[in-house]
Nucleic acid binder design. Structure first.
Lengths: 343, 343
DNA sequence: ATCACTTAGCTAATCGATTAGCTCGGTTTG
DNA sequence: CAAACCGAGCTAATCGATTAGCTAAGTGAT
């Protein structure tokens, strides 16, 4: 690779002039500018980001740290984030904390070493996160995505989990279900906790409450949901409807239903939250609340870039997106069930 | 952030000594080493990768360029690659060429600017790729993944597409199907071409050949496969079985079948290649050939790291993995179909 | 003609590390 | 005891860019 010195020599100018031409940072006479551009083209020169980064103290890198790269939901975030980040002139470095707080710590220190300009973080665990913010150093621009942690002063982009769960649950209740169960995510996460709370709120508003044994929590994984759903549904006396806290988990629940020889929606109605790609092909079509995931991601990147550029002068922003209910055919009125599959 | 100079001053040594301690690159007496380590800890020092990279001419970054980040198949590659790359001490920068050769060119020049140490590339389009290899500069270590392009001298990791298609097709033929159609990928890609060839080979071996109108090609996308499948299956006189060239496309085909009021496998048997995550929850379970995707990715990263470290001294390696048939229940003997759903 | 002022373009310091080559005190050897 | 050698740790060059500060030539006012 040729360097700025080669270009300067070949064009018969100083490196300062070459730099000025590249960055348009000072006036250069047309004649010289042309010579420099010609030399650049001839030598096929492109400035070394490593050197620029060292000098400028930035890296053009944005880190994306997700909680579970194997989850299609986060794969979609990767997809959307890559495009958004590229549109702003950055490149995306992807990390997987795998829901492990220690891994998150390791990753964040790596992110600092790489001197990433900012990080889009799906935080894991409790409020451990802010520990990494040493008092002396300037903070790493951070946008929390999807989940939040206690008392953090980063910008956040979240979904209204309570509303999502409430909408889905109300839909089930409107169909006449009274015995509604739920498969929730981990309750120490705002996504898990919020969705359970929303479900409980919706039921309480109608004077109902789920049986404790009909509410089970598990990790946001297909296999976890499968086994939880199985044990929940194998009860002699099972609920007529389930609110499942995530798209991936809904997949597991559907599989459990099929494997138990039950039918959805005839025997069990299912409603869920947070769609995943490919789920569109599933039959029955899942009734669910959808996240405006692409908008959320774009907004997250926009906030992050803004914070990178303007620093602490911008005050903290917490943006909450609203989910919308998408009705499929995975839910049936409660009456139907009794006629088709008497207990 | 503190620099190596701060550490040197605080420990009362030279920066060379600090560097020696950090990199274990020269003997340092226990006393000094202890002082240096104490200073490092106290100042919470971590070396700037930007500076190291500039000096060492490397970046600890590996680029992954996939053809379609929205495809769950590649999401899985991202997942596996992130883990593999991290295990070797690198970080993963993800790019999406979106099947566009121009985008691929842009990305590859960006990869050079970032001075990524190597690139894992799912090439797009024809053999345009090697154009980016300027004669004067040293080549960017590259491993082609999944697909290959003409006359490239990079290492490659591929699957035996012909065998995959052959196995799946033979399974259909063994069930008595003679009128077998196919939804193939783009034929200018080795994956698309190879799978069609494998299917044709299998049929020819039994003296069969598909009707031209039963073989349609489309992009490796769910929606593309859906519409192709629809128009294929809406023919008055349709095939009894389909070989679908990818997991994502199989999802689309299944959706088309359901929407046309047909049943799988009763009316149409489906076999496919290349599984995608989440497909395990689908009913009927898809009969398909699976790629050992995690092994393939690990091997790709291993080759790439090896090439990064040992350079051109290693000769070119082309590793072909074998797919294996996973039998589900999306295929039925041809007889059953007539009894259950007479044409 | 002189002085002040502007400005195109250069020189050289700088970012934060690595590392070739040197210094200087101590040990070995003839 | 001097010459040769050894090695721990230092000095300073270097990677490839950016940029503060300088030079010297040009312009205009007096």
């Amino acid at each position: 690779m040729s360097t700025i010195k080669d270009v300067a020599r070949s064009a018969g100018v100083s490196t300062a002039t070459v730099s000025a031409v590249i960055n348009d940072s000072a006036y250069v006479s047309p004649a010289l500018r042309a010579r420099v551009l010609a030399a650049i083209r001839e030598l096929n020169y492109s400035p070394s980001l490593a050197a620029q980064n060292l000098k400028r103290g930035r890296s053009q890198l944005i880190a994306l740290v997700v909680a579970d790269l194997a989850n299609p939901f986060f794969s979609r975030v990767v997809w959307a984030a890559e495009a958004a980040v590229a549109a702003w002139g950055y490149s995306l470095v992807v990390f997987n904390s795998d829901e492990k707080p220690e891994a998150e710590q390791r990753i964040l220190s790596r992110v600092r070493m790489l001197s990433c300009d900012g990080v889009l973080l799906v935080p894991v665990g409790d409020s451990t996160k802010h520990l990494q913010r040493e008092p002396d150093e300037r903070p790493l621009p951070t946008v929390l995505f999807g989940r939040t942690v206690e008392d953090d002063r980063s910008d956040t982009i979240t979904i209204d989990n309570i509303s999502a769960a409430r909408q889905a649950t109300e839909y089930l209740l409107d169909l006449g279900h009274t015995r509604v169960g739920s498969i929730t995510g981990p309750l120490h996460l705002t996504t898990g906790r919020g969705r359970l709370d929303g479900m409980l709120t919706a039921m309480k508003a109608r004077g109902l409450a789920p049986e404790p044994r009909d509410v089970r929590s598990g990790e946001f994984r297909e296999d976890a949901a499968y086994s939880v759903a199985r044990s929940l549904l194998e009860q002699p006396d099972r609920p007529t409807a389930l609110y499942v806290a995530s798209g991936l988990m809904a997949l597991g629940a559907m599989r459990a239903i099929a494997d138990l020889g039950l039918r959805c929606p005839a025997d069990i109605s299912i409603a869920s939250t947070d769609t995943i790609p490919g789920i569109g092909g599933l039959r029955p079509r899942l009734t669910r609340t959808e996240h405006p995931l692409v908008d959320m991601t774009n907004e997250a990147v926009r906030l992050l870039v803004d914070r990178i550029r303007r620093g602490a002068e911008v005050e903290q922003r917490n943006i909450v997106f609203q989910p919308s209910l998408v009705v499929g055919d995975s839910c049936a009125p409660v009456g139907l069930r009794d006629s088709q599959s008497p207990r």
